[in-house]
């Protein structure tokens, strides 16, 4: 149990998707102009990460890994399909996002209109695909760990985008050198926040 909590805390703070790996920066910068929409996108990212990671884990474990197809027939023991992982992951993510979009549109039209364009955009959010690729690279032991990692990274991303949006709302009233306004200062603030997040490094329960 303590392992899971450890992994959870680590994926929120230490291995934060945005501040440590810069994943999902495009939507992070584009959508962090006010807190409400930022929170909406953040929730969607948490949800999609927490579901697609276990799914991709199962696919990798039983279809793609070297020798993974052994459960079908012993002849396949030497088969290595891991080069297909990119295409399988992105297909899973795109398909899942499409399903979520249809379900939300059908059963919760209010939420659908407030999330608007963000739902389809999640399919090409690097944080989602990055989560799956990190999962493969770090070799998590079971579905539970994959799920914990997905949930934790999602929450980390959520925290980052909400904090950024809050800062940018205040920033609208401050006196910034003209060429630095907008994009430039956003980059620098993200960098400073990243330095602050580095103080979590080495935390272990």
């Amino acid at each position: 149990m303590i392992d899971y909590i450890n992994l959870f805390i680590k994926s929120i703070f230490v291995d934060n998707m945005i501040f440590a790996f810069f994943l999902g920066m495009c939507s992070f910068l584009a959508v962090s102009k006010n807190v409400k929409t930022a929170a909406g996108l953040g929730f969607a990212v948490i949800f999609v990460l927490a579901v697609t990671l276990p799914l991709n884990y199962i696919l990798f474990e039983y279809l793609l890994k070297p020798g993974a197809l052994q459960w079908l027939s012993p002849d396949f023991a030497s088969l290595d399909l891991s080069f297909l992982s990119y295409i399988v992951y992105i297909a899973t993510i795109a398909a899942f996002v499409q399903i979520v979009e249809m379900v939300v549109e059908k059963f919760a039209p209010g939420l659908y209109s407030s999330l608007g364009i963000f739902l389809p955009l999640i399919a090409v959010n690097c944080a989602i695909l990055g989560g799956s690729l990190f999962m493969e690279q770090r070799g998590y032991a079971n579905v539970g760990e994959a799920f914990t990692f997905g949930l934790g990274s999602g929450i980390g991303w959520f925290l980052a985008i909400v904090a950024m949006a809050a800062i940018r709302e205040k920033l609208a009233y401050s006196n910034i050198p003209k060429p630095l306004k907008g994009l430039g200062i956003s980059y620098i603030i993200t960098g400073l926040m990243g330095i602050a997040f580095m103080s979590f490094m080495g935390i272990k329960l």
């Binding site: 810069f22 980059y187 993200t190 960098g191 990243g194």
Partner: peptide
């Protein structure tokens, strides 16, 4: 070498 410097 740290990641945040890239952004700055």
């Amino acid at each position: 070498i740290l990641p945040p410097m890239a952004l700055i």
